[in-house]
């Protein structure tokens, strides 16, 4: 009897705790500035040294030829483990993490093709409205 009363009082106490879960997408957790989110490349700083490709443990980075005649690192997001080795290896700081892990690909081909992420695409999504 005492045990059951204890169980009930515990449950009632828990009832008034604020929820821990996040109502995504209206609510987002703040992960801080040093979050290892998606990786973007600043082409004006990139020197195409290929160190990032060499250091990548998941073999996610492939260099591809762009219209300006230079090669840039493209990341296969199906392989990337967001470890950040490429960011550390980058001698000019052109590869950078963004504070965002919530990116949606609407096209499978774009997702599969190793390409750089446009920094604009890496901006956080605008909050979606609720249904009612």
């Amino acid at each position: 009897m005492i045990t059951h009363l204890k169980l009930f009082t515990t449950a009632v106490k828990q009832l008034f705790q604020p929820p821990l879960t996040v109502r995504w997408p209206e609510e987002r957790r703040n992960y801080g500035d040093r979050m290892r989110g998606f990786i973007v490349n600043d082409r004006s700083k990139c020197i195409s040294c290929q160190l990032c490709e060499a250091v990548c443990p998941a073999k996610a980075i492939k260099f591809h030829l762009e219209a300006d005649g230079r090669r840039y690192p493209g990341i296969d997001w199906g392989r990337c483990i967001l470890c950040g080795y490429c960011v550390d290896a980058c001698p000019t700081g052109s590869l950078q993490h963004v504070n965002n892990t919530e990116i949606v690909w609407t096209d499978l081909d774009v997702y599969k093709k190793p390409s750089e992420m446009d920094p604009d695409d890496a901006a956080p999504l605008p909050a979606t409205k609720s249904l009612i």
Binding site: Q14, Q17, P19, L20, T21, L131, I132
Partner: peptide, 14 residues
Amino acid sequence: ARVQWRYGPLYVSR
């Protein structure tokens, strides 16, 4: 849901 620190049903008629 509240005992388990969740929100429970919410989307229909917030």
